[in-house]
Write a protein that binds this DNA or RNA. Structure first.
Lengths: 257, 257
DNA sequence: TTTACATTGCGTCATGATGACACAATGTAA
DNA sequence: TTACATTGTGTCATCATGACGCAATGTAAA
């Protein structure tokens, strides 16, 4: 299907297939090269980037819509996904914004078109394993790639605000719940998980105190193996004790870092 | 205006005045008689109760809609109000539910009527000073009164789930932010604020440890006065240091209770 | 008026969590 | 062989927390 045809199809079908006024946007975090990353879509016309998002089926739970967006964009099932905030200011999605884009697509629109109306969006954030993701851009976008959280490019509309809020929520989350199972490979070293925490919190932690504390949670298993091929002393490998990990998610951790 | 006329007016005007598919519901907490209370509306036909809620003006920020609902129902300005969760399952507001009610009002409805469609609702919770509130029922309700949190009556639709989630959020909130300014009178005693915490957390706290910890936050001023007319030793009165209180709201407290 | 009692104000003590830091062991590269 | 970065493990002082003691205060019963 031609790109413009699929855009037209969305425009035509949307009015009756989707819940009006409401959308979901997903902040997808990954971890690679000791850096926290986020997946962003390159806008097809503008030199700006966007969070992957979508509309909600007329009979679809909002959470399911967010899951669907994630699966369509990343191919992943069973993702850690959490609603974190609603962005409901009028003017967050200016009518002109989309009219101009559609004009460039060669599509003339009635300004009463459903997609041009005001949209309130529900923000979700996801934590995913970097290497398991195969990013697939959507119809409206050129590319879909990872960005370092410290080098995020200019974003469309209020997506920067959404991203910042997601990150702030993730930091608070870190104090209450274990994090890492969906961000790290199955086997990882203590320095690796420490880097993850340092990156999310954006501050240095003492190596020895970190180890004492994270082991104290009782959610890690130390394996017999050590990591080979590293330039220095080979560190032990760890894995998550999934049973205890899930218990900790439900019951919460002891507070504070 | 007759009650049924005002309902008809809402039904007629709503289609163009309100954002479709989306509503707000407010969980309004107060504190009285050493008990946590919540304001509930008595349904006009059913022997059930409901959270105060409303629709969102076509150009109104979602937060503003929640504020408006609170002001209309309680007369209060400057309320602590916070969005806490979106409830977006289809079937949370069954079509039949409203059709039956409107029939009892003597109003026959087209099932395509805007208000009968699926609604996603944004949950907000508010903390208010019990004695400052003058509850005003809405058009659709008989009464609007305080209920003890431990004796909440049967609620319509998924409002029980919304209430429970609000309470759970409030408990977590208690670990991160100071709470009480909007729930307690201007001057209060140490046992009073302790009862507030105990009620929200639903567990006993040691009197002496509580005092040490809450004073440690540095958000309270001990006044010269003591509370008179009490049956025992007259306790000191305290008030919030609003400057430090607001700093603590922004920066967070030391974690954990 | 005296006494009993619930409540308040102020403290101690043992324990556990936390932050700062020391030192030996390991593996690579000069 | 040596220098050096990194890892594994432990110590110590400090602070936060939970459990609890005891005297002072004010009301109500004797």
């Amino acid at each position: 299907m031609e790109k413009n045809e699929s855009i037209s199809a969305l425009l035509n079908a949307g009015e009756h297939n989707f819940l009006p006024s409401l959308s979901v946007d997903c902040v997808i975090f990954g971890f690679h090269d000791n850096q926290l990353k986020v997946l962003l879509l390159k806008h097809r016309h503008r030199n700006k980037w966007a969070l992957p998002g979508g509309f909600i089926g007329i009979d679809e739970p909002t959470d399911a819509a967010a899951y669907r967006v994630l699966q369509e964009r990343t191919g992943l099932q069973e993702i850690f996904l959490q609603q974190f905030h609603v962005f409901g200011d009028p003017g967050r999605s200016p009518k002109d914004f989309h009219i101009q884009d559609l004009k460039k697509d060669g599509i003339d629109t009635d300004e009463n078109l459903w997609i041009l109306q005001r949209f309130v969006t529900i923000g979700y954030y996801a934590l995913v394993e970097f290497f398991k993701v195969s990013p697939i851009p959507d119809t409206l976008s050129e590319k879909f790639i990872w960005w370092d959280i410290h080098q995020v490019p200019s974003l469309v509309m209020d997506h920067r605000k959404i991203l910042d809020k997601a990150l702030a929520t993730l930091r608070i989350q870190l104090n209450n719940q274990p994090i890492g199972y969906n961000l790290l490979p199955e086997k990882f070293t203590m320095p690796e998980i420490q880097k993850l925490y340092e990156t999310i919190l954006d501050k240095k932690l003492d190596r020895r105190n970190f180890q004492r504390k994270i082991l104290g949670f009782g959610i890690l298993n130390r394996l017999e193996e050590t990591k080979k091929g590293v330039p220095h002393k080979s560190p032990y490998l760890y894995s998550f004790d999934l049973k205890k990990y899930n218990e900790a998610i439900n019951e919460g951790l002891n507070f504070g870092w």
